[in-house]
Design a protein around this nucleic acid. Sequence first.
DNA 1: AAAATCCGCACAATCGGTTGCATAGGGATA
DNA 2: TATCCCTATGCAACCGATTGTGCGGATTTT
Lengths: 340, 340
Amino acid sequence: MYNKIPTLKEIAQRLKISVSTASRAMHNHPSIGLRTKTEVQQLAKELGYEPNQTALFFKQQKTHVVGVVLPNLKEEFFSQAINGIEYVAKENNYSVLIGQSHDDVEQEKQIINTMKNHRVDGLIVSISKYTKDYDHLTALEKYNIPVVFFDRVPGISFVHKVSSDIYESTKQAVEFLINNGHRRIGVINGPNEMKSCKERTDAYMKVLKNKKIKIDLSLVVFTDLTQQKTFEAMIELLKLKRPPTAIITINDYVALDAIQYARKAKLKINKDICFVSYSNLPITNYLAFPPLASVEQYPYEQAKKATEILFELLNKTNNNEEKIFYRDVIIKGQLIIHKK
Amino acid sequence: MYNKIPTLKEIAQRLKISVSTASRAMHNHPSIGLRTKTEVQQLAKELGYEPNQTALFFKQQKTHVVGVVLPNLKEEFFSQAINGIEYVAKENNYSVLIGQSHDDVEQEKQIINTMKNHRVDGLIVSISKYTKDYDHLTALEKYNIPVVFFDRVPGISFVHKVSSDIYESTKQAVEFLINNGHRRIGVINGPNEMKSCKERTDAYMKVLKNKKIKIDLSLVVFTDLTQQKTFEAMIELLKLKRPPTAIITINDYVALDAIQYARKAKLKINKDICFVSYSNLPITNYLAFPPLASVEQYPYEQAKKATEILFELLNKTNNNEEKIFYRDVIIKGQLIIHKK
DNA sequence: AAAATCCGCACAATCGGTTGCATAGGGATA
DNA sequence: TATCCCTATGCAACCGATTGTGCGGATTTT
């Protein structure tokens, strides 16, 4: 036999008072008599009454839910990000609705639409690697549902975003390799439409130019981050007349595959060929052949900051007049040199 | 300037009809004239109208949200599980509200309470390693919110659960080691209150007894799965007069720490000492010194099955009379031998 | 031509909680 | 004793969508 979750109505009926009185009594409204107040609060406690969030939505137009859309949770980068989001959400008494796009634009659109229909108060988004137009996202802003992007952010200016300074980190990475004597540096990059990938390429070129090292475009390969494509990229790089002595990979997962391939090709890691990567996954500590260095991108901090911005936007009495000031926060990365 | 998310009311006002007519028109109700129907549906499309899930809750008493509570998403085991949950949820047009307990009982209680207040239709739960009483969970069933546990399930019978057959897998693991000539087999186990840990111990004893190998209880160490405790466990095991030649660890993360310690202690992995573990994390493929074997526990399948059961429960017209039949599904594990 | 039928739509209640406004009833003041 | 005021409470509207019921008007039937 099931009980119902207690409602104000029930409390009111039992005490033979009106629902409105019960409501006010719960909120310690001054116009309610002390006796009634204590009676109501007492009974509420006994029954374990707590207000129905779903019902509250009507009056307050707030669901107290933030939506999170990201490519996948499998990557530790994103599960750490979730922790940052959850932390801030909790502080603000919010819950987190999660959807994974699995790097599929259609799924991303669907998820975001579902979240709209659930009337999430705001959204934290890291876009899929193939997302090129952002209409499904900017549309939400029209409905006054703020969206803050992190890490995988769109390359447009009229959105709020928090991202890692890939350009700067990449410069450091390339300089680090050059200082270690490398002149032939390969890049296994992601799709060049991704903002961060373009920054990698640009930074790479910039440093080589500064250091007066000849740029060889056959050293820069674009992939879709799958293991298959990584292997193909390695084949391509290794069969060059003058193959690279160091390779920068777009992230540690790709680095792992690339290193695996290099080992199969009988290359000595960190001797015949060096790898530098991004993400600085904890798991690399357990590897016999980790990348030589990896750029820590602080996913927790990125996501935390993005969520803080979201709550700033939510708490702002949204003045239609005021011109929107779009936030663009950069979280500096750090090149972590792994001790051998 | 912001637009409002379109509502039925708006459509009704524009067409100068009542809201109820608009609603029926959207649902192709037979009593609505063809002309009105097409007008409404046309306008709905133009405005991008879609029903407000939150409002729907009132009439249908369904939020179309399932709650998921698990220790953390960082472990790939759980992020894979989420995929299984998300998959089934999506099939049923449901969204997923996520909370991590971080293995803290208080947080677990809070999250579950929040989920209750959000009126999730059902819950998928993997309990924290310290959860010993289940009142906060079984209470939900009283409110007719079904709960299905997976992997970390309570050791009580009157709940629905899907779990891995740890007892059987552990027998296989121990037999595997014995067949490879090991006689001194250590166990780095988790807290013995965890159902799965007790099963490990029991299975271990059982096999040794069957094989007439003397049981030495100093070979079985209980930890809380932290790196610190794992190191301490290793110290304890290695300082024994006759230290183990093989160690079974509760999961791959613990195995990684244990292996790391063993290497620091100058032991040759898979020679001086072997490791067998649980989870079969993909990452172990990249390790130079992976455990010799690991029990694949199929988190995706476990979680998928748990969610399927949840939807069975949700779709059942809940007959108060009928005695509840509690599901207890076992997903068989498989001992995966890593090729060296 | 009066009565029965039926189509197409509107009204109103409902879900749970909040909140502006009205009001009963008791005590204080003139 | 009449007037005023104030306290404590109730009423009702509202949020968005659904759904049972009721009804006007046109068509069909007798």
